[in-house]
């Protein structure tokens, strides 16, 4: 006689009680809703932007002219604003990354636990500051200080193309350099927080092992801590970059927006930012121009989405060596 085939028992990972069921339902609704929300925003933007995109053609993305005066045909080309957003975001990331990594290192490896908590809270508070406040601070407090830095940079490093200035009367105030610093202030918290998390997940035995081999603080940081956590740190930096690209109000206050494209002369008084441009025009725009502004928003949305996607991929692929 052969043994009957084994009957598989049904396993249930689903909700068990009524309360459990409701919890299960409400969380899944919330989860799906976030997808729906993103999709709705995209659809709305796309519908609103379509007329302008159709009319302006592909030149909308790279052209450098914006004419929206009554009685004249609308010309809307967002090139200098897209490049400006990227330039400012890059400057911001270049300034913020070393700051954030140093801060994270200090919090995780140098400060006692009480001071570390205080420092963490302070930095998180910085993230909670509304960007209007940072913009106003940037305009009234930081700009005069930064102009001094810019003058010095121009004086001593003016031979580097980045710090070259064509006309001193039209430079320093409202420059991408200042906007970059403002963006840096705004993204330091997010980059610090991701980096701090990655650093604190590092296996302490790894660091002790490096110290026991005669490593100094610097060599252990450069050869063990940084390589082991590089993936996570890069991800954090890209998250910061995504945020920097979308920054609106703060840049609006400190930057002189201009369609005269600024390829990289950081100290000159003209630059661009997609989001800030939308803010600048929105109040007095005709319906045709609004469609163009929506299209600008759509382009920015897509760029930010791509950056965030890359960031997530990198963070997920890097395996921070977790402690058991």
């Amino acid at each position: 006689m052969t043994k009957p085939a084994p009957v598989r028992r049904k396993l249930s990972a689903g909700p068990l009680s009524t309360g459990d069921k409701w919890f299960f339902r409400s969380t899944s609704i919330a989860a799906y809703f976030s997808f729906v929300l993103v999709a709705l925003v995209l659809i709305f933007l796309f519908l609103k932007a379509w007329p302008a995109l159709q009319e302006q053609g592909f030149e909308f993305v790279y052209g450098t002219k914006w004419v929206a005066e009554e009685g004249q045909p609308l010309i809307m080309q967002i090139g200098p604003m897209i490049w400006g957003s990227m330039l400012i975001a890059l400057v911001g990331v270049l300034i913020a990354t070393p700051m954030a990594i140093s801060l994270a290192y200090m919090i995780v490896f140098m400060l006692g636990s009480r001071l570390a908590k205080v420092a963490t809270t302070l930095i998180d508070l910085l993230a909670a500051l509304p960007s209007v406040i940072i913009g106003l601070w940037g305009f009234y407090v930081f700009t005069p200080v930064a102009i001094n830095w810019e003058t010095t940079l121009h004086q001593y490093l003016g031979w580097i193309p980045l710090f070259k200035v064509e006309n001193v009367d039209n430079a320093f105030r409202g420059s991408p350099f200042i906007a970059g610093w403002i963006v840096a202030v705004m993204i330091v918290p997010i980059v610090t927080s991701v980096t701090r998390e990655i650093f604190s997940q590092l296996d302490k035995d790894l660091i002790n092992g490096a110290i026991a081999l005669g490593g100094s603080r610097l060599s252990v940081f450069r050869k063990v801590i940084l390589p082991t956590s590089s993936g996570g740190v890069v991800g954090g930096v890209l998250l910061g970059l995504g945020r920097a690209l979308g920054e609106t109000v703060a840049i609006f206050y400190v930057l002189q927006i201009s369609f005269d494209i600024n390829w990289g002369q950081l100290l000159e008084s003209h630059g661009g930012g997609v989001a800030s441009w939308i803010l600048a025009r929105f109040g007095e725009a005709s319906s045709g121009e609004i469609s163009g502004l929506m299209a600008a928003g759509l382009v920015l949305f897509v760029i930010t989405l791509i950056v965030n996607f890359i960031a997530n991929t990198i963070v997920n692929r890097s395996q921070p060596w977790r402690k058991d």
């Binding site: 035995d205 002790n208 092992g209 081999l213 063990v224």
Partner: peptide, 15 residues
Amino acid sequence: RIKIGMVFQKPNPFP
């Protein structure tokens, strides 16, 4: 530490 080496409880090669 260069003259006196140490091996830890858990293997900790640099990953």
